[in-house]
């Protein structure tokens, strides 16, 4: 065996220090992508190596929020991959419509692009009033941004096109107010959304959901952690509840996937329970 690279050793010590000193467990994160993130946090903190960052993180508690922010799920887009949202509306919403009350959980909402995507789709389908939406993330600063619902105006055009491609019935601009370089989403879209801190690595079941959205979050987890979180989703879903993952996610190595049925493979929509006989 070749000797491990110094950067890799420092990465393991960083993970250990973050857990010992601050209680955040990143041991189940896939190392290649985690390494990139930790390196970029180190660079932004004027540290030449991950080791330098670790030393500071142990002694200076004030650094923790920016480190956590740098290690969490990144920016997304509204209506990213429009065709999958079209599938969600066509194949899942009609069943959701049969419930008098609908619970939806978006796990890893980051800055909220997708939770507002969902809110708009529910609104246009006439389901919003019946919905209780939980948007969770372990990164408090991302949650605060998500709650504000303010996005850079530079994205407006792409998002508007995505919205129409996803089957949007109006114009996306009906849902926001432009303010200088930013867009502020309509406050009304938030009336049934609860933003809350929840860490998939450490926290448990908190609701009985009809739909869980978790796109491009599990891709950062090792197989054992991916499977554990899938188990958490199973325990959080009603029988026949829906799970939607990111476009390129694979459950081939997750034993808990056996409890889900594929509803739409391309859109990565799954349903808890066995297929109808």
């Amino acid at each position: 065996m070749p000797r491990p690279d110094p950067d890799d050793v420092e990465l393991e010590l960083f993970v250990r220090a973050l857990q010992l000193r601050h209680g955040y467990d990143f041991s189940g994160y896939a190392r290649a992508s985690l390494k990139r993130r930790v390196q970029s946090v180190a660079m932004a903190s004027q540290c030449k190596t991950i080791g330098e960052l670790t030393a500071k993180l142990i002694r200076e508690d004030a650094r923790l929020p920016s480190v956590i922010a740098g290690l969490s799920v990144p920016v997304s887009e509204m209506f990213r991959n429009p065709s999958v949202f079209k599938a969600l509306v066509a194949e899942v919403f009609p069943v959701l419509a049969s419930y008098p009350h609908i619970n939806i959980w978006q796990a890893g909402c980051a800055r909220g692009e997708e939770i507002y995507t969902l809110a708009i789709l529910l609104e246009e389908a006439g389901l919003y009033e019946r919905a209780q939406i939980y948007a969770t993330d372990f990164n408090d600063s991302a949650l605060a941004l998500a709650q504000e619902g303010i996005f850079p105006v530079a994205e407006a055009r792409t998002w508007s096109e995505n919205y129409l491609a996803a089957g949007g019935q109006h114009s996306l601009s009906d849902y926001w107010h432009a303010r200088y370089e930013h867009l502020k989403l309509d406050e009304k879209l938030k009336r049934n959304i609860t933003f809350a801190n929840h860490n998939l690595v450490a926290d448990g079941v908190f609701c009985e959901a009809h739909l869980i959205l978790c796109r491009n979050v599990l891709i950062y987890f090792t197989n054992p952690l991916q499977d554990r979180v899938l188990g958490l989703f199973r325990d959080s879903l009603v029988r026949g509840g829906y799970l939607m993952l990111g476009n390129k996610e694979s459950l081939s190595f997750a034993p808990n996937a056996g409890e889900f049925t594929v509803l739409n493979a391309r859109a990565r929509i799954y349903r808890l329970g066995l297929p109808q006989p």
Binding site: D8, A30, A32, I219, K248
Partner: peptide, 10 residues
């Protein structure tokens, strides 16, 4: 390191 692919949306 185990020779498997991972993806990121960073």
């Amino acid at each position: 390191t185990d020779g498997r692919f991972m993806l990121s949306t960073d």
